[in-house]
Write a protein that binds this DNA or RNA. Structure first.
Length: 424
RNA sequence: GGAGGCGUAGCGAAGCUGGUUAUCGCGCCGGCCUGUCAAGCCGGAGAUCGCGGGUUCGAUCCCCGUCGCUUCCGCCA
């Protein structure tokens, strides 16, 4: 007999069908037992008069007849004929699969990741995340961007101040890529002009906060033939507006699991662009004290300001000072053609125009205490003709976290890696 | 790396100005129950109160140390 998905049972009313899934909940009333079965499409009720030994999370095939019943959740239920047990489950689960995950500490949730991921509410985070990846790629492919996959093992050191992990590579050491920055620039220059990459990035920072993990997914974009960072901001506005519209269309259920809401595409288009100096002034006014840097508290203040003044929880900050940006950032006086995007109080993107002329790059290096040798092959991208270009990267887990309104980024990583955790 | 908070049963918590059987809810085990929706009712098992030391007649409670977790900060996506 062919399998029927839980979401389709009403179409089989009166017929014998077979469902496959996990025993989500058992309500044994003595003479009658109600069993909730869960599969990838949802949950439905199975009813039986027979007493049976069954544990939660046992994987079964359930044979029976679909009956309409007002008292059944969803209006239909399966009158059970019999179960085939495909995968028995031990009693006493290490994590409440059918409970409210917000009542459980994050430590247990992550220690028991293999089981906590079964929780439908937790799983909804990753359904949404998968959708974000899909929409991101959809939008870019539709605009002539080519997807690339670059190596995460790099032979030469670092591109910025961030520390990198080193790993053994036969008889020497290599580093885990902190971003695909140079490779995506190389691919712009190679003639693809427009590229994007979805891949892991590694940061060896010893930070321990609710917004950092040491391995994260970076949604990277790079594009040739631009004038300034404003072209990149425009691209990201359109991209995020598309992603958010699609989320609001297709991911309602995922968001409802957490009582979350996603901004509209229109709100993304309304996001203001303010300079780094303006941003500091706004924070100064809001917090009523002197401000020298945009701190996390300042980021929250900026988003609150944007919400009040522009009706959007997003704000672009551009014209960062040169010393706050990596050496390859295109200068503009003492400032740079670069930007951050803040969303609901958190930085989710850094981007900007990059230096595309070898002479300018060479001139810039000493300011960062670097030499041409340290560039390795990077310099060749520009030595032999490279179009003006730029791009940005979105932190996938951060974006997920902010849409879902979750307190800790680790909840948005399937198997998070932090200072202490490398398992499961 | 710095600052704060928290470690009590499988999970989430209460407790104690220091007093001898450490409490509650969920879960688990057993019993009753034919329409449940976090089912209900009855019963039961389950805790060296993170670890080490100190103060005290007596410490889960106070003090010191240590380990773990967590939040915030620095830095970043």
């Amino acid at each position: 007999m062919e399998r029927t998905l839980v979401k389709d049972i009403q179409a089989h009313e009166g017929k014998e069908i077979m469902l496959s899934g996990w025993i989500h909940r058992i309500r044994d009333l003595g003479g009658v037992t109600f069993i909730i079965l869960r599969d990838r499409s949802g949950r439905c009720q199975i009813v039986t008069n027979e007493a049976m030994e069954l544990t939660q999370e046992t994987v079964v095939r359930a044979y029976g007849k679909v009956c309409a019943n007002d008292k059944a959740p969803g209006g239909y239920e399966l009158a059970l004929d019999h179960f085939d047990v495909l995968g028995p489950a031990a009693a006493e689960l290490p994590f409440p699969v059918n409970g409210d995950p917000s009542k459980v500490g994050i430590e247990l949730t992550l220690d028991q990741r293999m089981i906590s991921l079964r929780n439908p509410q937790i799983l909804s985070i990753f359904r949404l995340q998968a959708s974000l990846v899909q929409y991101f790629a959809e939008y870019l492919r539709g605009r002539d961007f080519t997807e690339i996959k670059s190596s995460k093992m790099i032979g030469t050191g670092t591109e910025g101040g961030t520390s990198v992990f080193s790993v053994e590579y036969f008889d020497r050491k290599v580093f885990l890529a902190q971003s695909p920055q140079f490779y995506k620039q190389a691919m712009v220059s190679s003639g693809l002009e427009r590229v994007f990459e979805i891949g892991h990035a590694y940061r060896a920072e010893k930070h321990e906060t609710s917004r950092h993990i040491n391995e994260y997914v970076s949604l990277d974009v790079e594009m040739g033939f631009i004038e300034s960072e404003m072209d990149i901001i425009k691209l990201e506005r359109g991209l995020l507006a598309y992603i958010f519209d699609r989320v609001n269309e297709n991911n309602r259920e995922d968001m409802e699991a957490w009582g979350a809401t996603c901004p509209t595409g229109d709100q993304v288009l309304k996001a203001p662009v303010i300079s780094h100096d303006e941003a500091k002034q706004i924070i100064r006014d809001k917090l009523d004290r002197r401000v020298f840097e945009i701190s996390p508290e300042g980021e929250r203040a900026l988003c609150a300001w944007s919400e009040e003044e522009h009706g959007t929880p997003l704000v672009f900050v551009n014209e960062f000072p040169r010393r706050k940006r990596p050496f390859y950032t295109y200068p503009k006086g003492t400032k740079t053609m670069s930007f951050d995007l803040l969303f609901r109080g958190l930085e989710i993107t850094t981007g900007g125009r990059r230096i595309n002329e070898y002479a300018m790059l060479k001139e810039t290096l000493p300011r960062f205490g670097m030499t041409e040798e340290q560039l390795g092959g990077y310099g060749d991208i520009f030595k032999y003709g490279c179009p003006p270009h730029g791009g940005f990267a979105i932190g996938l887990e951060r974006l997920t976290q902010k849409i879902m309104g979750l307190g800790n980024i680790k909840e948005c990583s399937l198997f998070p890696r932090d200072r202490k955790r490398v398992t499961p």
